[in-house]
Amino acid sequence: MSAFSGKRGLVTGAGSGIGRAAAIEFARQGASVAVLDVDEDAAAETAAMIGKDGGEALAAAVDIADEESVRAAVDRTVAGYGGLDFAVNNAGMSSRGLLDQMPLDGFERVVHVNLAGTFLCLKHELPALDRGGAIVNVASNGGLAAIRNAPAYVAAKHGVVGLTKVAAVDYAARGIRVNAVCPGPTRTPGFEKWAANTEFPSSPAPPCQ
């Protein structure tokens, strides 16, 4: 029996990169996976890849910065699979620029998507885990240390790490585990785009997403 046989989960930001790889692997391990992404076509592509490999997946659009969108995506997952056993909150965005040159609305947008977006996902996933389960928030190496020229991203990802710690303490008694992973630079389409326009080695390290 596969490790995730009979489990029902969702992955945000699953249209590419880390999220796509995670969704595909969960399905290979026997899970039914809701593939969620702001790009509905990319989510459908990931779901099709899972289906071609014999796995079970449904695709849906989600904007993690919008509470109603998050609520609808979680509700659709629960309706489609009869419940939720795990979630991976991977969706996010990066940004570059010196702090004193960053407009306030740009800073707020990055923090809202990465930190408030993770909060919204947790807010609606936790009640759906009615028989316990696990949530993994994808933070970043920028959640543990500085990344040059990425003040908003680093601030938001530090916040994700702190939010994860609070959720882990508050929901442990319900049998729900909440953890964060903090990957460094990962070879995703976003990384490739960054690398194609970067001179090594003097340029600052990229975020993981």
Rank of each mutant, 00 (worst) to 15 (best):
D105C: 01
A168S: 15
A150L: 07
A145T: 11
A65H: 02
E25M: 15
L122I: 06
D63K: 07
M102P: 11
G175W: 12
D37Q: 10
T198G: 07
P185D: 04
N141R: 15
D41K: 15
G30T: 06
V35S: 03
I147G: 02
A23S: 06
D75Q: 11
A72S: 14
Q29A: 11
R177V: 08
T164E: 15
R71E: 05
S94P: 14
I24K: 12
L163I: 08
K123D: 12
A21C: 11
A196E: 04
A22Q: 11
E199L: 13
S202E: 15
G162P: 07
G92K: 12
V110S: 01
A23G: 07
V166F: 04
N90E: 14
A134P: 15
L99C: 04
D66E: 15
E45P: 00
R28D: 10
N90R: 02
D41R: 13
A91M: 10
N114K: 00
L163D: 06
S140W: 06
G142Y: 11
Y171P: 08
S5Q: 09
G190T: 02
D130F: 08
M49C: 10
R20P: 02
G117A: 03
A14K: 12
A31C: 13
L84W: 02
A23R: 13
G97Y: 08
G80R: 10
P204R: 03
S94F: 03
A73Q: 06
A3P: 15
S202F: 06
H112C: 02
L10G: 01
G133L: 15
L144W: 09
R109G: 01
R96V: 05
G132Q: 09
G13E: 09
G143R: 13
A146R: 11
A44T: 07
V110T: 06
F191G: 05
D130Y: 01
K157F: 02
V11F: 05
A61M: 15
S16C: 09
A205T: 10
D100M: 07
R148I: 04
V70Q: 09
V38D: 03
G51M: 07
L84D: 01
G51A: 11
G83W: 00
V178I: 15
T198Y: 03
G117Y: 07
A134F: 09
P189S: 04
F26L: 11
L104T: 03
A128D: 14
P183F: 05
S95A: 06
G17E: 12
A79K: 15
A145I: 13
G9A: 05
